[in-house]
Amino acid sequence: VTTYKLVINGKTLKGETTTKAVDAETAEKAFKQYANDNGVDGVWTYDDATKTFTVTEMV
């Protein structure tokens, strides 16, 4: 189990959260659900070296 981080660069919501998951795919599903629940829709990137997902909403 690995800890993954999500950085949110939203128009109205900004911040970070973490989740523990067995792999990046599982973490991504959890983060996308979290973003969807919070009304964040944007471009996703993932950095495997730092285990960090970033979602950026276009203005």
Rank of each mutant, 00 (worst) to 15 (best):
Val1Glu: 15
Val1Ser: 09
Val1Pro: 11
Val1Arg: 06
Thr2Arg: 08
Thr2Ala: 10
Thr2Glu: 12
Thr3Asp: 08
Thr3His: 06
Thr3Trp: 12
Tyr4Cys: 01
Tyr4Thr: 00
Tyr4Gln: 00
Lys5Thr: 11
Leu6Pro: 00
Leu6Glu: 00
Leu6Ile: 03
Val7Asn: 04
Val7Ile: 12
Val7Ser: 04
Ile8Pro: 01
Ile8Asp: 01
Asn9Arg: 12
Gly10Leu: 13
Gly10Trp: 06
Gly10Cys: 12
Lys11Thr: 10
Lys11Asp: 05
Thr12Lys: 10
Thr12Leu: 10
Leu13Asp: 05
Leu13Met: 13
Lys14Tyr: 07
Glu16Trp: 15
Glu16His: 09
Thr17Lys: 12
Thr17His: 13
Thr17Met: 13
Thr18Asp: 05
Thr18His: 10
Thr19Ser: 06
Thr19Ala: 09
Thr19Arg: 06
Thr19Trp: 08
Ala21Gly: 04
Ala21Asp: 03
Val22Gly: 11
Val22Trp: 09
Val22Met: 10
Asp23Asn: 11
Ala24Pro: 11
Ala24Cys: 10
Ala24Ser: 11
Glu25Gln: 13
Thr26Lys: 06
Ala27Gln: 01
Ala27Phe: 01
Ala27Thr: 01
Ala27Ile: 01
Ala27Gly: 02
Glu28Ala: 15
Lys29Gly: 05
Lys29Ser: 08
Lys29Met: 10
Ala30Asn: 09
Phe31Val: 02
Phe31Met: 03
Phe31His: 01
Phe31Glu: 00
Lys32Leu: 07
Gln33Asp: 06
Gln33Asn: 08
Gln33Arg: 12
Tyr34His: 04
Ala35Leu: 09
Asn36Arg: 14
Asn36Ile: 15
Asp37Gly: 05
Asp37Trp: 07
Asp37Lys: 11
Asn38Phe: 15
Asn38Ile: 14
Asn38Val: 14
Asn38Lys: 15
Asn38Pro: 01
Gly39Tyr: 06
Gly39Ile: 04
Gly39Asp: 07
Val40Thr: 03
Val40Glu: 02
Asp41Val: 15
Asp41Trp: 13
Val43Asp: 07
Trp44Gly: 00
Trp44Gln: 01
Thr45Leu: 07
Thr45Asp: 07
Thr45Cys: 07
Tyr46Glu: 00
Tyr46His: 02
Asp47Val: 05
Asp48Val: 10
Asp48Asn: 08
Thr50Gly: 04
Thr50Phe: 05
Thr50Ser: 10
Thr50Tyr: 05
Lys51Phe: 13
Lys51Gln: 10
Lys51Asn: 07
Lys51Arg: 13
Thr52Cys: 05
Thr52Met: 04
Phe53Glu: 00
Phe53Gln: 00
Thr54Trp: 08
Thr54Tyr: 10
Val55Arg: 01
Thr56Glu: 09
Thr56Lys: 05
Glu57Tyr: 09
Met58Thr: 14
Val59Asn: 11
Val59Gln: 13
